[in-house]
Amino acid sequence: MKALVTAARVALISLVLVIFLFPVYWTVTMAFKPADEWTPTSGKIYWLPDQPTLDNFRRIFGGTPGGSASFLVSTPINATDSIVNSLITATFGSLLALVVGTFTAYGISRYRAGGNMLGFSVLQLRMFPPIAVIIPVLFLWTYLHLFDTRLGLILIYGAVTFPFVVWLMKSFFDEVPREISEAAIVDGCTQFGAFWKSVLPLVKGGLATTALFVFILNWSDFLIALVLAGNKIVTAPVFLSQINSAATGQEFGSRAALGVILITPPLLLSILIQKHLVRGLTFGAIKR
């Protein structure tokens, strides 16, 4: 009986893994497939590229398609600008949300800033799906001359991910006993000093997790960048959606190549902060 249960568990977990990992696998393999392996119209599904090539990568950085894709008649495209735009807007937008949000969370957690309603109100911001408010924001941004600017995107990214930061960081701050910051104050710190030197080091792990989460949200945003920018300022996800050619429609391989490149910053970030994701720093501070 126990063996059946274990077998069922393994099967279920494998199924879930397959469902989640399949798109990644497909994208990575697609990125290295030549054009004639892109679609099954040729009759065969290529699980692995038969003739792996770097053509797709060359294509998205300005090269003219050669080889199997030479039938594509289209102007050269270069994704570099869009990647830079994405990096700038996502990074600074996340930073904005992190800084403002962390201080807000500390205020709510420690000093009950805003009474009972502020925390909830902030969270409510996120209950509106962005798509519901994107048009009014478009008008507002245009009025403020923020339409189609990097600054505009940074600000909106900061605003949109700010509730997440508050929500997550507040729960981390709540776990730090209030007496630790009080001890620091008694030891001579200012309020800010107590926050910076005694509390913040204890939520490093939480901060890292929140930063990663928020960065991924902003980095992969498509809708906001599409509506609030899109002419002069194009972010990578928007750029990716526009990789077409008159002849074949969507260029799967090129898109997959850009996709593979876009996975890298979040991946790198996770690896960098991995050691900070370890918990267990608060044990020992309080008696049980």
Binding site: E179, I180, T282
Partner: peptide, 8 residues
């Protein structure tokens, strides 16, 4: 609850 700095 003592409030020692646990990371130090």
């Amino acid at each position: 609850n003592l409030a020692l700095y646990p990371d130090k």
